[in-house]
Amino acid sequence: MTTSVIKYVGRATDFKGKTLWEIIGNLKNFGVGRIIVRSVFERYPEPSYMKIVKVETTPDEERRRVRIWVEKTFRGKKLPNLTEIYRTSYKPDYKLIPKNEEAKLLNATAVHETQEILPNRIEMPALMKKFIIKDHENKGLEIVSDFTMPISYNHSPNRVKRIAKDNEKPTVQFTMGLGKPASPSLYEGVPLS
């Protein structure tokens, strides 16, 4: 499967490394106990790595994939549950950590933490407000005064930021407008209201 000469075809990719099976298939006991990393997560200063706990091979139709369970540490924080890797196991983005470098990762203490609290409600956009007023008038319902709606977030075990509960005061505020630019230099000469 692996060849020394690589000829690239098609679009460039951010991935760097091998597929999971290319690594695991060559290891003793399918690499249980070894440490792998996703190279896209190496952009963070804190260490992200995965320790292989269990490996299951897949039928021949899915020969690019493999089903493994890992103890995952993301940005220095170890997740409480085992993580299954199957759907993403074909991605050529995994890297095996040599045994003499494992200690360096395991002993790293940097943890990504933040005290930020995300809001749980957001104000409606202007047109939606007007639409809702009209709609309630047409249906003969009471006139609304609260023009906010709940924000829904995608679930992720990697989330560090907390979502505000009930009436908790969030530290960041999302609006329907442009918001505060991350790079103000791009908006020079543009009136931001």
């Binding site: 939606m128 924000i151 829904s152 630019p181």
Partner: peptide, 17 residues
């Protein structure tokens, strides 16, 4: 960074709507 922020904003807004 700015594009990332804008895209994230947009996705959050659209998802809540």
């Amino acid at each position: 960074l700015e594009l990332l922020r804008l895209h994230n904003n947009y996705k959050t807004q659209m998802r809540s709507i």
